[in-house]
Simulated scan of single mutants.
Amino acid sequence: MGEGFQMVAPDGQVLDRDAVLDHVRASRATSDGDFSISIEDIRAGWQAGDTIVVCYIETQQRAGKHSRRRSSAVFTTSSSAPNGVEWRHLHETWLQMPEG
């Protein structure tokens, strides 16, 4: 995640890079092995120069609850980033909210 990264969560909340990283760190090893994420229907939404918008469907399972979200992510090239790619923006919209 690059500096200035922002995420629009499925509930509409806008999170900055630090908030997303804090959430990921706090969630680490809290699922007792009952957590999975799968990505499908990956496609380029738009591309120009060193920037691409990637669109996909993300499915999560956590503690027996399933959810799905449509996501779009913006990536740019960066020689200092791992694998030369920097994540700049993420926008998620509920397709299926967590169910139990």
Rank of each mutant, 00 (worst) to 15 (best):
R70C: 08
W87C: 00
Q96C: 08
R43Y: 04
T51K: 15
S71C: 14
R28G: 15
D50M: 12
R69V: 07
W94M: 00
M1A: 11
I37T: 13
Y56C: 01
T59R: 15
H23G: 04
S72C: 09
E86M: 05
F35H: 13
Q96P: 05
Q6A: 14
S31G: 14
R43Q: 13
A19V: 06
S27T: 10
D18M: 14
W87Y: 15
F75N: 05
A63L: 14
V14M: 14
R28E: 11
F5H: 02
R68T: 02
A44Q: 11
F35E: 10
V54L: 09
H91W: 02
V74Q: 04
G45A: 06
F75P: 04
T77F: 15
S31W: 01
I37G: 14
D18F: 10
H89K: 05
D18P: 06
R62K: 14
Q61V: 06
A44P: 12
H66P: 02
A9Q: 08
G64H: 02
E3Y: 13
G33Y: 02
I42V: 08
R68G: 00
W94C: 00
A73M: 10
V85P: 00
V8P: 00
V53F: 00
G33T: 06
L15V: 09
S38M: 11
P10W: 00
E40G: 11
A29T: 09
L15Q: 07
T51H: 07
E86Y: 00
R68A: 01
V85G: 02
E86R: 03
F75V: 12
I42Y: 08
T77G: 08
W94K: 00
I57V: 08
V54A: 04
Q13W: 07
I39Q: 07
Q6D: 08
Q60C: 12
S71Y: 05
A81G: 10
S67E: 04
P82H: 10
M7K: 01
Q6Y: 12
G33S: 07
S38A: 10
E86K: 04
H89P: 02
D11Y: 00
T30P: 02
L21I: 15
R70H: 13
V85D: 02
R25C: 07
W87M: 01
V24F: 00
V74W: 14
R25N: 15
R62W: 01
A81P: 01
S79P: 09
D41S: 13
Q61N: 14
S71E: 06
A73T: 10
K65H: 15
D16G: 03
E92G: 05
F35L: 14
K65T: 13
H89A: 05
D11E: 12
A19H: 09
E58I: 04
T76C: 12
D18A: 12
L90M: 14
I57C: 04
T30K: 09
H23K: 06
G84I: 11
A9Y: 04
A9I: 08
F75K: 09
I42T: 14
A29Y: 01
E58A: 07
Q60W: 04
R70L: 09
S38D: 15
V74Y: 10
V74T: 08
W87I: 01
P98S: 06
E92F: 00
I52T: 06
L95E: 01
S36R: 13
F75S: 09
A81I: 03
